[in-house]
Write a protein that binds this DNA or RNA. Structure first.
Lengths: 155, 155
DNA sequence: CTAACACTTGAAGCGCGCTTTAAGTCAAGG
DNA sequence: CCTTGACTTAAAGCGCGCTTCAAGTGTTAG
């Protein structure tokens, strides 16, 4: 007799809530579980699937993408083929996000060097380091319309 | 007579929707605008404020944080003090996010090297490169319970 | 005067990834 | 038998940053 698990046991073993498991079933990430007297019954195999789900989440996939990864390919499609299809574009997206976060970081560092006297002067930094312009015109946090003295002193 | 703008003109000049301006007013990011016959009237100064809003958004601040930045300090608190208070913690958060994205990226790269025959075997990579363990046990995408031959060959 | 259009308000909607709630069923222990 | 607790379902709620809707008022051109 194969060992069967209740949803609560699966949840405890997988470290997630039972409600999440029901949610995964409802949206098709997990196949509909068999029931005994209305209660879901799982084999231990579901734990591997849930581990894949977690792995994919850590890799940045949405639940809908995870659904595709698990169930969106012709049955028997080998994992390498699935990962190639899914991870390539995701990798580009992650790299773009990292670039954006680095820009964000630089912007924050610039604000920490601000010495404007009015908030409205802090606008000049908003020109997001668009390359091609002379450095002197984009290094500053203070606006150009501020008086020259303040501009020269701080920016 | 000072030049006054309708909400539509402000929206066009600032490159945002009028609905966003109303939203900012409703949550206190912008002060309540004066009205003429019920219609909002703005001075050009609001454009600077909206530029600050956009700058802060690019820096990763939420609208509620932007509200604090603009209106949450004692009137007259100079910008440098405001930025110090707001940007420091945000910088830490951004750095943490970047670290997380780098982990995500590494995970994606690992999946691209997968040569498992069953998805359930791809779990081993989920051990998020926890340092301290022998490299051979965490380099693989394939699970340990897979047969030894496959493990040796691909992982 | 009338049509067309910008504006006003409050409230609801969206996408995401679940969680929570409500109302009920089933199982095990005493 | 009764209580306790884990389970079932469908539906609503949450947080974010607006957008969209509905129903009405104001403004302007012809």
């Amino acid at each position: 007799m194969v060992e069967e698990l209740t949803i609560g046991e699966v949840a405890r073993r997988a470290g997630i809530r039972a409600s999440a498991i029901r949610y995964y079933e409802s949206i098709g990430v997990l196949p509909r579980a068999g029931r005994t007297n209305g209660r879901r019954r799982y084999s231990v195999a579901v734990l591997s699937t849930l581990a894949i789900v977690r792995l994919a989440q850590q890799a940045g996939f949405s639940v809908s993408e995870i659904k595709t990864l698990l169930n969106g390919f012709a049955a028997g499609t080998p994992p390498p083929e699935r990962w190639q299809a899914m991870a390539g574009p995701k990798l580009n997206a992650v790299e773009a996000l990292i670039a954006e976060l680095n820009a964000r970081k630089q912007l924050l560092e610039k604000t920490l060097q601000c010495s404007c006297t009015h908030l409205d002067d802090c606008v000049h930094v908003a020109t997001r380091a668009e390359s091609g312009k002379p450095a002197a015109q984009q290094a500053a946090l203070c606006a150009q319309q501020g008086d020259a003295e303040r501009y020269d002193a701080h920016c």
